[in-house]
Design a protein around this nucleic acid. Structure first.
Length: 416
RNA sequence: GUGGGUGUAGCUCAGUUGGUAGAGCACUUGGUUGUGGCCCAAGUGGCCGAGGGUUCAAGUCCCUUCACUCACCCCA
């Protein structure tokens, strides 16, 4: 009989990997609130149009990567491919906007994209997502970047680089876009790679990012966004940079940094690692001032970022596994029950430990105690049952100091 | 969606010109009375990813398929 196996690109996360996720989530819940962020828990399923409207019909994510299917009443639903759209929807729907007040929210959990899996890229993957609503100031962008880098640092990640760019606004971006398309059209036909000639109209910014050497070469002379920003955008961008510099953050300006989702405007940034393979982007985000309005909310601006949890897990040091305080070795049949009760009282007192469910030979039980990594082995057999005692042995590596004593079972805690 | 690589014991991998499977680690049990780690011994454990073909004979050769993996693409 064929065994049922998990579907491609979906993972069971357990052991060390699971504890890394817990560490990341705990750090988020500790650090983000220090900046005034509150946690928001979002549904995994949304109406398809939410993503179509926000991310953009023409993007790869919406065009070919979404898990979309009809429900029983034939409504089109989609497993969220990212969190920002849902955050905006929730923000609008729950009327979270308060006049003149900034809202800071974060969430985390699984996202779904139908892509070919590879290192750092799963079909179900996990993101930490952070958004600030109603703060147009460059300081909001800067604070986000500072919080992000400090968060990653506190998780022990090293050798990361921050790349920064501005994509302009609804006013100046179309002009830049046109300048780019004009530039591509001025090139000899077929000089760009197949992918690029396909996307030079649909997503001209992406061409700047192409890895094909010939394209890279040609694109050297392409017009840069930063040269086409309107004065407002330029001013905004400069202020973001100023704050980051004052804060002492090292970053690289990358005028070719492009975001794949349509809603980004002005500030965009990415945190990149050279140590995790081709999917090197660990976190990314930026400003998306028009999105709330597109989704039927007020004229409220927004900025945010997302962190790829699997990707930072790849960069985290292995965590020391937790070892128990005790292991109760049961040496005679009638000791099983007392052993379980003893374990319960120890746990009630805050100790952690494992207890045999059946009796075994002394040797095998001591081996098990050793393997468990427990600090103490508690031996329970006929002798101990008769005298209401327990034998307590320290399992440390101090070879010859055979620390062992038989003590009153009710007073065991005094010896541990 | 396109390429490349890999599927043999729980894990990491050997397997020679085709002759019905091996190592290390792990696991279990021992090395006399109720004491772990080190050492020694024995033992458990494999439809050699699946299906078909060639052959007296296939882990090994051929075809198909599935899975995993890396990269393109895309993105966090």
């Amino acid at each position: 009989m064929d065994r049922i196996q998990k579907i491609k690109g979906f993972a069971d996360i357990f052991g060390i990997e699971a504890s890394k996720f817990v560490t990341i989530e705990t750090a988020a819940r500790t650090i983000f609130p220090r900046y005034g962020f509150e946690e928001l828990r979002l549904p995994l399923l949304e109406k398809t149009e939410l993503f179509a409207k926000s991310i953009g019909e023409e993007t790869d994510v919406v065009g070919k990567e979404m898990y979309t299917f009809p429900d029983r009443k034939n409504r089109s639903l989609t497993m969220r491919p990212e969190a920002t759209a849902g955050m905006c929807r929730a923000f609008i729907e729950n009327k979270m906007h308060k006049q003149g007040k900034v809202s800071k929210l974060f969430t985390f959990g699984p996202m779904f994209r139908y892509e070919r899996p590879q290192k750092g890229r799963m079909r179900q993957f996990h993101q930490l997502d952070v958004e600030i609503f109603a703060a147009p100031e460059p300081a909001a962008d800067a604070e986000l970047i500072l919080m992000l880098t400090s968060f990653l640092e506190q998780l022990g990640l090293k050798n990361l680089s921050v790349e920064l760019n501005s994509l302009g606004c609804a006013k100046c971006r179309p002009l830049y876009r046109k300048a780019l398309v004009d530039f591509y059209n001025s090139l000899a036909t077929d000089s760009l790679c197949a992918d690029c000639s396909r996307r030079k109209e649909s997503n001209p910014l992406r061409v700047l990012d192409c890895k094909v050497p010939e394209c890279k070469e040609l694109v050297q002379n392409a017009p840069l966004v930063t040269e086409h920003l309107c004065t407002e955008c330029q001013e905004h961008f400069i202020q973001v940079q100023n704050i980051l510099s004052v804060a002492g953050l090292k970053y690289t300006l990358n005028p070719r940094l492009v975001r794949g989702l349509d809603y980004y405007q002005r500030t965009t940034f990415e945190v990149v690692s050279g140590d995790i393979g081709a999917q090197s982007s660990v976190a990314g985000g930026g400003r998306y001032d028009g999105l709330i309005k597109t989704l039927g909310g007020g004229d409220i601006c927004a900025t945010g970022f997302a962190i790829g949890m699997e990707r930072i897990a790849l960069l985290m040091d292995e965590l020391e596994p937790q070892t128990p305080d005790f292991y109760i070795a049961v040496v005679d049949d009638n000791a099983v029950e007392p052993a379980l009760l003893l374990a319960q009282t120890l746990r009630a007192a805050g100790k952690s430990g494992i207890c045999d469910f059946v009796k075994g030979s002394m040797k095998s039980r001591m081996r098990a105690a050793d393997k468990s990594g427990a600090e103490y082995a508690l031996i329970l057999g006929n002798d101990e049952i008769a005298n209401n005692t327990v034998t307590l042995k320290y399992m440390g590596k101090t070879g010859d100091a055979q620390e062992q004593q038989t003590v009153d079972r009710n007073k065991i805690l005094e010896f541990m």
